[in-house]
Design a protein around this nucleic acid. Structure first.
Length: 895
DNA sequence: CATTGAAGTCTTTTT
DNA sequence: GACTTCAATG
């Protein structure tokens, strides 16, 4: 029945629907629906027809619960709405409908929601009888399946939100032509349950049926290259000119995609990767895709999985710069003179180390009345120096140059000590910090990159696998990261980068926009493509943001267009204090949810903060109002005290030299070993040339004399715990089991109960950590395909497949893959424990998974929210000293 | 004498 | 919530 639909059917104009028949017809012929919302058993229908580029199309349909209460209660705002939900179905009268249409907030809500993407929305309301409602459901189902087969097949948000009545689906399928069925089969992995059911129901004994089954049973989602080609074409057809140009750009010509916000950056990047694999037959394992945050990496993985299947995605070398470096450094540790079991030292541990070193200069600082930064400040200064490639000795000259005025004859440490004591201490602390890291066999975040550069720079073969490098958010790369990219790309010099100079918000992390130019210098044939079409925001939001950033005079002028209407104007509200502000945020969100009649739910709201500490008042307000929320990037899971406790023990098991872990665990639970004793141990260990851990073990064994306040008896349980765990770890016990054993050995639960009021939530976090540990094992990077996945399912369907001589495509890169794992994997360097620890140290946003599905308002820092989008966004505390922040040295960035 | 507990201060942004 | 300082306890 769909065959005879003219393709330009959408030229037919549907402005509003006064009766059900015309609406129903319209739904069935409309091909380009943007969104289909969940249908509930309801009586009032909102139909919206939208005009896109001169073509009027029905775009969104939704049933809302009856409006009886709305009609009876004339009051506006919050009070009238919550009652809607529980009112039984009820046909509305003309008068009520009139009221509804007049209900400006509701319609406004609709229009602003839709006009984010489409201009000229018109809204009208229709009433449905029960029978009509059922027919409508049917129409929607057909419509959805049609969309699923022939529309935007990769849209993930449609999947969960659509009614899938199996009878209706079959009715739909029966009407399809053979060709359409084939295409359906090629995408049917998105509807696994349906397909299994269909094959059983129809007893399909033909080519199509097998393909459906093959798609379900074979590990690679798309059974034939013909279908891959079709899919790629459909993908390309949804891109605009510059986007498509970017995707199809020849792989061997370096490419810079300069993309404004909301211009489909990630879509282009993922499509390009798919294109490289599907059209240029570049093996996934030879593609390196780098992002800056784990969130971006995960997002990309998710989207790519929909395009090319899980198998191929697993083979991509994909992740943050840090994660990639860590991985290759473990593999090739020996090449650069590292030990494979190095520990990754996070910011908190770095800070503690620096604090400890700083104490040795305490007397000097006091005696000379030197103004000195706190250790956090120093850590970030050290980090800056490291990213710029300055070693402690280099800092001497640099700090002396910073001193204005007279020329300095001898640029050496002694002069620095005289002229800039604070600078001198900094250099000494920096030196000592580096020494400690080496001595304790650990790398901080910057070291991962620095040593990565050493590895790939000196040992070309370590990067020889790489055929193409793609970098997301390129404007945020710093010098080290840029070098890293260059070295990895060295073998084939195929590079694609995506970036936006206007969105550089990591200047404080030494991000260098100059890298865009550097790349043109180092890769002379580099081409640029600009993406200037914004698909995210309304015109008035763009105008506002342009107004803000164009206050920056040195900015390179760059345009951004949108096809959207101006939409509602952004609102600015002033409050006397933060309490009122927080209160307003809570009630305003409630009002908007109510006023839009459930079109917006909590997931559609975000509150963006300059820094996470601002969330206190707001969290309190949301709790008061009973609004569920989640905190992005707040106190991160892996930075929680109880999680760090457990991780520290495990780190020490894996790397006994790692000092921060030793200091954390030796008196945990309290064993009456205080600061002084620990300091003594460390000092004596240094004298003896042992790690503190080794020394403690020897004291325990009676091999060396005890220290002043006797330690031997106190450390008994500590030493046995570590020895037990070490033994178990070496025999390959899973991290999850190790944690359980550890909890038991140190009676951690008892300790928590004693030391913290909220021990129950803390215990839950540990359970969550155990969960994470068990998951991590399954999704370990580069895990070779399991036996089960390699062998096609041996049931009757698969056997039939082969009998009929049907070809199931063999993955091109599987062989290459197994070779590379054999060659690279120094089995010793990748114990399950080590993998787990690395994942823990390098992941930030492994928020509990079920959290994501729940309906919650998002609270996030602006930085963490980069690249995400919500229909409604609030930005509290936009006031001087907060936003722009008082300590920011780059106002353009704050803009 | 070393350790622990209580009270008080300060909190950018990320891997 | 993490760190520091000061007084009280083992």
């Amino acid at each position: 029945m769909y065959n005879d639909l003219p393709l330009d059917i959408t030229d037919r104009i549907f402005t509003s629907f006064t009766d059900f028949e015309s609406l129903w017809t319209a739904i069935r012929v409309s091909k380009h629906s943007y969104s289909v919302f969940k249908l509930r058993s309801t009586s009032i229908l909102y139909a919206v027809s939208v005009n896109i580029a001169g073509r009027n199309v029905i775009h969104v349909l939704r049933l809302v619960r009856t409006a009886t209460n709305l009609a009876s209660s004339d009051s506006e705002g919050v009070d009238a709405i919550p009652a809607w939900k529980d009112v039984p179905r009820y046909p509305v009268t003309t008068e009520q409908r009139r009221l509804l249409i007049k209900y400006a907030d509701v319609l406004q809500g609709w229009e602003s929601f839709l006009s984010r993407r489409h201009k000229d929305c018109t809204v009208s309301a229709v009433t449905l009888t029960d029978a009509e409602s059922d027919r409508f459901q049917q129409a929607m189902c057909e419509f959805w399946m049609y969309q699923q087969c022939f529309g935007e097949i990769w849209r993930e948000d449609i999947l969960d939100d659509t009614p899938m009545d199996i009878e209706l689906q079959i009715m739909f399928l029966k009407r399809l032509s053979t060709e359409e069925l084939q295409r359906f089969a090629s995408v049917c992995l998105f509807m696994k349950d349906t397909c299994i059911w269909l094959c059983r129901a129809f007893g399909w004994n033909n080519d199509i049926g097998y393909r459906v089954v093959a798609a379900l049973t074979h590990p690679t989602p798309y059974p034939t290259s013909v279908h891959l080609s079709v899919i790629m074409d459909e993908l390309l057809s949804t891109l605009n000119g510059p986007q498509r140009k970017s995707v199809e750009h020849p792989p061997n010509v370096p490419l810079q995609i300069l993309a404004g916000p909301g211009s489909g950056k990630t879509k282009v990047l993922t499509t390009r990767i798919a294109y490289l694999i599907l059209r240029h037959a570049i093996a996934p394992s030879t593609i390196c895709a780098v992002t800056f945050t784990n969130k971006a990496a995960n997002e990309m993985k998710l989207r790519l999985t929909k395009l090319i299947g899980k198998e191929k995605v697993m083979r991509l070398k994909m992740g943050t710069f840090h994660a990639l470096c860590a991985r290759f450094l473990r593999q090739h540790a020996a090449l650069v003179g590292l030990e494979g079991n190095f520990t990754i030292c996070d910011a908190e541990e770095s800070k503690k180390l620096v604090g400890k070193i700083l104490k040795t200069y305490k007397d000097y600082i006091i005696a000379h009345k030197i103004m000195f930064d706190d250790s956090k400040e120093i850590v970030s200064k050290i980090s800056k120096a490291k990213t710029k490639g300055y070693e402690p000795d280099d800092m001497v000259a640099i700090l002396l140059d910073d001193l204005k005025g007279k020329t300095i004859p001898h640029k050496n440490l002694a002069t620095l000590k005289d002229l800039d004591p604070a600078g001198w201490i900094f250099v000494e602390v920096y030196r000592e910090y580096e020494r400690t890291l080496r001595a304790t066999n650990s790398l901080d975040f910057d070291d991962l990159l620095i040593w990565g550069v050493k590895l790939f720079g000196k040992h070309k073969q370590a990067a020889a696998w790489c055929k193409h490098v793609l970098v997301d958010e390129f404007q945020d790369t710093n010098t080290v990261q840029y070098d890293l990219m260059r070295y990895i790309a060295d073998a084939n010099r195929c590079v694609t980068i995506v970036g936006d100079p206007d969105q550089s918000i990591y200047g404080w992390r030494s991000a260098d926009i100059g890298n865009l130019k550097n790349m043109q210098r180092d890769f002379p044939s580099t081409k640029q493509i600009f993406l200037e079409q914004n698909y995210r925001s309304t015109a008035s939001i763009l105008a506002l943001s342009l107004g803000i950033i164009s206050g920056d005079n040195v900015r390179i002028k760059k345009t951004l267009h949108t096809a959207h209407p101006s939409g509602p104007r952004p609102m600015m509200h002033r409050f006397l204090d933060e309490k009122m502000e927080a209160q307003f945020i809570g009630t305003e969100m409630k009002r908007v949810v109510a006023a839009t009649g459930g079109i917006l739910d909590w997931n559609d709201f975000a509150i963006l903060l300059r820094f996470s500490a601002l969330s206190r008042e707001i969290e309190a307000s949301l709790q008061r109002e009973g609004i569920p929320y989640r905190m992005l990037g707040g106190h991160k899971f892996f930075e929680r005290l109880e999680v760090k406790d457990i991780l520290a023990y495990l780190q020490l098991v894996d790397n006994p030299q790692f000092l921060p872990a030793f200091m954390r665990t030796i008196n945990l639970p309290p064993r009456n070993i205080g600061e002084k004793s620990i300091a003594q141990v460390i000092q004596r260990a240094e004298q003896a040339g042992l790690s503190p851990m080794a020394l403690v073990e020897r004291i325990h064994d009676g091999k060396v004399p005890d220290i002043k306040p006797p330690l031997k008896r106190k450390v008994g349980p500590f030493v046995t715990t570590l020895r037990t765990l070490r033994e178990q770890a070496n025999s390959g016990t899973s991290p999850a089991m190790l944690i359980r054993k550890l909890l038991e050995l140190i009676k951690y639960t008892d300790h928590l109960k004693k030391s913290h009021e909220d021990w129950e939530t803390r215990l839950e976090n540990i359970v969550e950590l155990i969960n994470f540990a068990s998951q991590e094992k399954e999704t370990a990077l580069d895990a070779p395909p399991t036996e089960a996945a390699k062998v096609p399912v041996r049931d009757h369907r698969a056997t039939q497949l082969e009998d009929e001589g049907l070809v199931i495509i063999e993955d091109d890169s599987r062989n290459a893959m197994s070779q590379s794992t054999d060659a690279d994997d120094n089995a010793d360097n990748e114990t399950p424990l080590r993998q787990f620890l690395q994942a823990s140290m390098l992941s930030t946003d492994s928020q509990t998974k079920d959290d994501d599905n729940k309906d919650k308002v998002t609270i996030s820092t602006c930085h963490a929210a980069k690249g995400l989008e919500w229909p409604v966004v609030m930005v509290p505390a936009v006031e001087n000293k907060v936003f722009p922040h008082k300590r920011s040295d780059d106002h353009a960035e704050e803009r």
